[in-house]
Each structure stands twice: as C-alpha cells, then as structure tokens.
Design a binder for these strands. Sequence first.
DNA 1: GCCGTTTTCGGCCCGACTGTTTTCAGTCG
Length: 581
Amino acid sequence: MENTDVAQVFAEVADLLELTGGNAFKVRAYRQAAQLVELLPTPVSELWRQGKLTELPAIGERLAAHIEELLATGHYREHDKLLARVPPGLLELLKVEGLGPKTAALAWKRLHVKGLEDFEVACRSGALEKLPRMGPRRVAALLLAIERHRARKGRVPLYRALASAEAIVRQLREVPGVQAAEVAGSIRRRRETIGDLDLLVASLEVDAVIAAFKRAPEVQQLVASGPTRCTARLKSGLQADLRILPPQSFGAAMHYFTGSKSHNIEVRTRAMRQGLKLSEYGVFDREGRRLGGATEEDVFRLVGLPWIPPELREGAGEVEAAAAGRLPRLIEEADLLGDLHVHSEASSDGRSSVEELREEAGHLGRRYLAITDHSRSRPLGLEAGPMRALALEIHRLEAQVRRGPHLLTGVEVDILGDGELDLPLEVLAELDCVVASVHSHFSDSPEKMTRRIVRALRSGVVDVLGHPTGRQLGIRDPYAFDFQQVLEVAREQGVALEINATPDRLDLDDKHCRLAKEAGVRLVISSDAHHASQLANLRYGVWVARRGWLEREDLLNTLPLNQLKRRLHAHRGPPELHAPG
DNA sequence: GCCGTTTTCGGCCCGACTGTTTTCAGTCG
C-alpha cells in the first residue's frame, strides 16, 4: 500500500463523515492527514516500521493505528462501516462544483438519491427544488455543473494554463489605475497540472478591471461577480478567479492566493500563536492595527520567516525548514549549463539538424549539448554502424566549428524486454552520454519491470535513466516498478535519473525527485527536444526540480564540461570496457 | 480526529459570494 492509497482512503473517510454529518473538525483532521501523507517523501510503511508515525504533524495515536491496520490488511473498520452506511455513488456528487456534502446528504435522505444519475433526475423533476434552501436558480446552476463535470477531461498541463493566465494578466496590466497584476494559485507554485486560474490585481478601480477582464479574448463569460472578486469561464473550459485588492494588501493577497491551502493554514496558525492575525488583507495585531501586507516579504518577515519560494509551499515541511533556516537554495534555470538528451534528424522523429540544434542551444546560453538519437528498435532508430558514423560526424563538427556549445556524442538506447540494451556494449561505451529508456512492454508486472531497469543500470555503460516512470500527463500512467530498489541500484552504479522536461511528461515528478535526492542519487534535467524550438523546455524541468527541493549540487548538468565528462566516465564499468590508463 | 507559551478539555484559519431568505446556510478557495 503506497502513500497515495492511504491518502485516498483518508480523503474518502473525510467525505463519508461529511455526508453522514460527522464532526467537522474530525473531517478536517482526516483531510489534513490525507494531504500530509500524499506529500510525504518517505513511504508510510517505512515510518511505521520505525515507529515514527505519530511524530508526523496531524497524525496522532488513532490515525497511526488506522494506518497500521491499512498496511496490514488493506482496509480498516471505521472506513468499512462508513462505506456500508453511504451509497458509494454519493461520493461522486461531491466532485460537482457547487454541490457539497450538505446538499448531497439532503438529496440522499429526503429523495433517496444514490448517485449522479439520481441527482440529475431529482433536479429535472423539480423534486430537489422543493427542499429547504433550494430554488430554481440553484437547480439550474447544478445542472450546468453536472454537465461540466461530465465533459471535463480533468486538469490541464501547466504549460497550457500558464499561457492563458499570462495573456490575461498582460491585458489587465494595461488598465488605467492597475498597479500590479500577477498570476497566483497552483500556477505560481508550478504544479504539473492546473484546475483553475487564480489572478490578482492591485487597484482601486474595480469596475474598470472587471470590465477589461470580461473583454479579454480568453474569457467566455462571467459566472460570478462581486466588489472584490469575480469568476469567469474561459473558452478553454478552465475557470479563472480574479481578485482585486488595494495595493496595501497586495502582498498578503499574493501569499494567500498562492496557497497551498495547507501551507496557508500553517503560516496563519503560526501568526495566531504570535498574537497576530493574518488574512488576505494584511497582517494585524490584536487591536486590529495593520502591521504590513503590501509585499509578500512583509508577511513572512512579520511571522518571523524568510520568504519561501512558491514551489515549496505545499505544507510539506517548508515552514518548519524556513523557521530553522534550512530552506534549500533551489536550482535555477541559469544553473543549467547543458542539455543531455536531444534528438536530431539523424534518426527517427528528430526534425532539426545537429547544426540547428547547436545554434539554438547557443542562443539559450547552454555550454554543452549531447546528441542522443534513438537506437535500432525504434522506428528509424540507428544500428551500430550509423550510430558510430553519427558520433564521428559530431566529432568532426566539434573540431571544425569552435563557436557555440560543445557537442557531446550520445544515444537514447532502448531497454529491451529482458533488460538488455539495444546496441552492443562496446558501441555504447564509445559515446560520451548514454541515456537508457523504456519504450515498450509498459504493462510488464512490477517485478519484471524492476528487473529490466535494474539489469540495464548494471550494464556498466548507462549514464542516465531516461524518463524513469514512462508517464505522459493525461495519456499514460506511470508503469509500475519498485522505485526504491531502482534508486538503490542507481546510487550503487552512479547512474543519474532524468527529469524529462517535455511539458506533458515531466518525468520524474516532484515527489520522486525528493526521494532521489534523499537517497543520494544525482539527477539531470533534459529537454528530450525533437526540434530546436523545444530546447527551451528545460524550464519546465527546472520547476519540477524546484518543487522537489533540488539544489544545484543535486544535478549533473550544472557541472562545467570538464567535470561533467569526468563524472560521466568515472562510474563506467565493468573494468574490461575501460581502456587502461 | 489533533493538539498544548491560557488548555489533557476545549479549542480548531478566514473571508467572499450565491441563492435562499428577511438573517443565513452552503460552498469555495
């Protein structure tokens, strides 16, 4: 049982408690525990073995006992009892926007609604409308929300949401009287997928701002509007929340609306203990006197903390680390000196020439670039002969043209079904950078997948494990394997794990990055570009790395070229593949 | 359910908006 499974059970218990009218604070306790476990970098099973579960904030004796029962048997009694009381279909109702536990429970008790279909019937028949505090407008809104819930493909990848959020913000900055306009919310925290847009404006001219928002080409229609905020549905199907605040509150509002929710609760609780009140309007003392809030730095300073980068604000230990002066110095894009996974038109699907790639990488300030085309198992992938010829060509270019980033020879070699590599070891050993990736048999059993990867890592010629979990956002789930074991072997073999920065891969993800760091495994951030224009994608990988608490020292492609080359070759084995001296 | 610089009992973050009401409950972030 993984952390996400435990988190899911706790979140479901929270929902079930709400539906059955359970204690609201108990509900919150379960929610907090679910969130904590979800974000935990260490497996709960390990903490349980060490007897450290109750050392976690939000986990007391009882929740620890529940976790123990879950780990031992896969379920626990309180959860089962609740499930027996509540029709399972009711849980889906809670995912409909504007439909909460009270309304769902009301429909269940009074109209015997057992799921979304029942609920829709109750809406259309007029039965729901007759219940207390219900009315025609509310029912109409719920019907619309049900439609959207069904149509919604879920969250969108960060890069899509970011583009429209930035476009809207640019337009709002042009409105007279607007002193600042920024993107907040999960986009600012650089979460990999986004559910809605949070936009903030500092201005006293509320009407003008809302009018401009309404006119933005991305906006389809306003769905709610008040004196400080309004909500719109965008043409992309996403929802955007716009808040307008006086400039003196802008910093406090940025902090508040950047979240995450659990981060906010931690900071606010901390403020409260110090006799302060923190809201989106500012920081206030007991008498209600304003102490600050124009900038985010104000807010953090007044509660005795250094400024915390948004990517860390997940309530996953960052407040504690900040208080102790132990915040990481997060990796920045400028720290990356090169790109170690790039495809050229020499094989398969690459569409730019080596020269074009080199030129664009130069514009982006990279100092080195590994050309890592596909091996023979991929359609149009290279056999040993052409692979050697490409390496020679790269050496020739490197010697001939001194301008631009240094070119490294390389390959993205397939890890075959049995864990063999797709080219002879002696060919691979001649190359500067060997990225090994799984491209087939994704549905192997976890045991077999683990054996495949481990065998490849032990070949002695692999430098980097490419897109280690194989996921594609919204398309393909990660394949199942024993990540901890792969980490151990990677450390033992000196193999780095890749953060593939292709915006709908982002593989490794932030949590796996943190695990790798803790296991002492180095990482690389690579674009996996198939066209020169995609070399800029590295920034998406940087954001993942930052969310994974990574620092410059945790990555290999922050090293200068000579150190990188030494590092790539130092771990190569077995010894017979090394030339003596 | 958790937790302790007021507490082992009695608190638990705070505010906005909507649709229903005629003062507020439900939902959201």
